[in-house]
Design a protein around this nucleic acid. Sequence first.
RNA 1: GGCCCCUUCGUCUAGCCCGGUCUAGGACAUCAGAUUUUCGAUCUGAGAACAUGGGUUCAAAUCCCAUAGGGGUCACCA
Length: 438
Amino acid sequence: MVHVRFSPSPTGFLHVGGARTALYNWLFARHHGGIFSLRIEDTDRQRSSEEFTKDIMAGLQWLGLDWDKGPIFQSQRLETYNRYVEMLLSSGKAYYSEEEGKKAVRFKMSDDTLEFKDLIRGTITFDASLIEDFVLRKADGFPTYNFACVVDDAEMKITHVIRGDDHIANTPKQLALYKALELEAPKFAHLPMILGEDGARLSKRHGATAVKEYMELGYLPDALVNFIALLGWAPGDDRELVSREEMIKDFTLERVGSTSARFNKTKLDWMNSQYIRQTPSEELVRLLKPFLSRAGVNVEGVEESWLKRLVELYKERFKTLQDFFLQTSFFFTEEIEYQPEVVDKHLKSEEITGLLHEVHDALSGLEEFKKETLEGCLRGVVERKHVGFGKLAQPLRVAITGRTVSAGLFETMELLGKERTLKRLSHCLHTFCRAGSI
RNA sequence: GGCCCCUUCGUCUAGCCCGGUCUAGGACAUCAGAUUUUCGAUCUGAGAACAUGGGUUCAAAUCCCAUAGGGGUCACCA
């Protein structure tokens, strides 16, 4: 039975690199019908914190990476590690060493050649004599990473260790420990790193690195999962949008590449927009509400069916949940702001004033404020004025939305409603257009 | 610096293990055209890569070696 684990240390928020490691472990376990465990490596008492543990678990849950066992906390397993320390001490494979008044236990490193077959890179060989005796138990009584990792992987009967390739250099030490403890080593697969857009190691200066940040920016978990899955793995054919089920079915370590990948936000944005389109509108409404609230919208006061229609109007236009409000804010307020440059360019001319006047009058007389009737009405206006519809569209858009970019005019007006549309129109005529008073 | 890993379009990658089907495929991005009430979306099309140098072979992106470049790691951190 395959048994893998994700074993983060709670010294920081769950970041995309860790998320991908977790994802690959999870996919591997699900593909083989095995076990996926979560182990918290909190042996650094200074840097570990419960806040990070919570963040990591919340992040995994949000991504839909459910674990079968755990979380197991290393900080609660000191007796176990001590038992193994005693074994090594009594067999002479470990010894006490004191430096600067701190008494630790060190492992007596062998001096042979250590070799293992990495499932992703093939055989990797190390000269053990180049590795110095390393600490097993720190002066504070806690085990070090390499030691706790080996003890736990052995006790948990982990079959495959899938982790970042920054752990390659740790592997010979762990191999030596397995040998000294007469335990069978698991198989190893070292994943290449995820780099920032510029090819440097991913860090805060690259923008969002924490999973939580992507959640707050309005990325859908499925989209993020799909995107990071493809950073190092490919299904083998030309598919880009791969569902979880397909990933589980097709995921193998053989198909994981060995070269580091750069994080590409533009492609993530594209992928997120694809997932947004796939998501039912009712679901989007539900997901969007927290974002609207945070933006200051009184969500309780917004009619559900109206919001759903707005979502449908913008469904192919917003790339993230946060982006939705950025594009539709003028629907949620009474007053809107007009940028002077935009007003100057689109509203300040005799001809436009006349046109908008005409539009205001025509719209006032409408019984029904639906997109079909609106279209008929507006096209009638430009026809009577002998101008192209393009002449009217932009100024009118600016007048009722305050922007030069929006969804279709008729749909926009319908959703905005007669009252607000006319109010904004007359406000513009009064304020910006020289000739105008209604 | 020692040790280890990596190197296909700008980016993510397919192909590499099992040399010929590769005039190297796809996606994002870019550019052009179409459409159009703006932007976007959409459709069509274009440009764009086997790091370099040696081998091996009838034949190399695919195998071998060297060089260069990038990354990782050298803690009583994980």
